[in-house]
């Protein structure tokens, strides 16, 4: 699998559109899934497109020292964090919008998916990202550390924080673990 990707990347770096298309087909659903969780469904298509524009524009800078997927995710992560920094206010929904009449009502009204999305929305973007890379994408700590450019030991401590905060936000929205 990796050999095949290496070969496709090498061809794509020479400007071959078909090879670039193969990379797009290979990765765009994964990137999109992460973007949905990072920025929401409405923005995910645009941001996924933006990620691939950057990927192909910067493809010449990929040296092969890391796996292509790791490099691509790094581009995706940077794009999503930049997006959230630019539009931070719009991304933040507060509990003021929630029903104020108790947890059980809130839970009745919000599907589990929405509960999770809303709780994730409140989480600091970098914590959100680490949590999603681990829980949604199934990445190991080493891979997360390389991609996020942080020490491996920091991944665990940030995941602790992400999980505790997320649980608290979920419970405030009516989730009962």
């Amino acid at each position: 699998m990796q050999d095949r990707i290496v070969e496709i990347v090498s061809t794509a770096q020479r400007g071959d559109r078909e090879a670039q298309r193969q990379l797009y087909v290979e990765y765009h659903q994964q990137v999109h899934r992460l973007m949905v969780r990072m920025v929401g469904v409405q923005e995910a298509d645009d941001l996924t497109q933006q990620v691939f524009l950057q990927v192909f524009r910067k493809l010449g800078q990929f040296t092969g020292q890391s796996r292509f997927g790791t490099w691509l995710y790094r581009v995706a992560i940077n794009e999503s964090l930049q997006h959230l920094r630019r539009s931070g206010r719009r991304q933040t929904r507060t509990l003021a919008e929630d029903p104020a009449d108790g947890r059980s009502h809130a839970r009745d009204k919000l599907e589990q998916r929405e509960l999770l999305d809303r709780a994730l929305e409140r989480l600091d973007p970098e914590l959100r990202l680490i949590f999603l890379l681990r829980e949604s994408e199934g990445w190991g700590y080493r891979e997360i550390a390389r991609t996020m450019k942080i020490p491996e030991g920091t991944v665990g401590s940030r995941l602790n924080r992400a999980r505790r905060e997320l649980r608290r936000y979920l419970e405030e929205l009516g989730w009962e673990p």
């Binding site: 765009h28 659903q29 990137v31 999109h32 899934r33 949905v36 969780r37 469904v41 995910a44 298509d45 996924t48 497109q49 691939f52 589990q112 998916r113 999770l116 829980e135 949604s136 999980r163 997320l166 649980r167 979920l170 989730w175 673990p177």
Partner: peptide
């Protein structure tokens, strides 16, 4: 939490852009 994430994976498919 892990079970919740697994149960509600995003169901939207990426548009082919």
């Amino acid at each position: 939490l892990s079970e919740l994430v697994a149960a509600v994976q995003p169901d939207s498919q990426a548009a082919d852009c």
